[in-house]
Amino acid sequence: MEGGKACAPSGVFAHLEMLEMQSHEAAVKQEEMEQQEEKLARLKATVQELRLQRDDLQAKVDLQQKGQLGKEGVVLPPAQPSARAVLEWKIKSLKAMLRLFYLTGISGKLTKKGVCFCISTAYEGTYLDSYYLDLLTEPEVQIYRHSVPIFIPLEEIAKKYLQTDIRRFLSVLSDHLNAYVQRRYQADQLQKHFSDQIEGKLQRNSLCDLLVFNYNVSRKSKTFLFKVRLLYGDLCCSLPTEAVVSCASDAPASVAEMAAAHSGLFRRVALHKAFRSFGSA
């Protein structure tokens, strides 16, 4: 009995405890539910708000375009613009004009101690890498920092022109950089579009002035392997000065002639364009 007496209260306590815990859990759950509902409501409201904002903007843009269609050329601003708005317009248009210099190949901005030039490069209409040159102008012109690759003979070019003619210096450097980027671009294009004709790996050095690869040529349902070695002796040029194309010594004369013709083509036409012309021939 004694044990039972002692047990009963503890059983009650345990029961009470459990009830308490349950109610606490329920409360927590309830709270969580409420929080989640709140969060959902908030999200819904945000979506609603953003949709409205989007529709407003869309309507504005549509109206703007309609207005421009109606009147050719200049559309006057609706009201007298504030001085601030005019200045902001001018700043934007100056920035746009400065950005255009990127297209000319040389852009830059004045720094506290000199000029930071940017040399842009392109292959035909496709703009490729840009390189930076931070020049100090006092007491004499010197290169403070730059992003020109190590294999471009920057020091040599600088020694020749930097002190006497900065324009010439940049122009020669730009010739080197453009030619390098163009050689690299041609090799990339070849790998990208004609890998099915290339046998094995295309080998090139970092300056891309030496390319070695093999490619297959089919003639009268037979396939011949041509070995190519392209040497770009003029570092300011994107076409090779030397193009050796060879085939197996037992290949028929017509195939050897073809190899010679390809060699001539590689010296005159960009690599990927030469391959494109094989495809169409």
Partner: peptide
Amino acid sequence: ECGNLLTFFR
């Protein structure tokens, strides 16, 4: 023909 604007400028 080639859109070669950079070369044109240079």
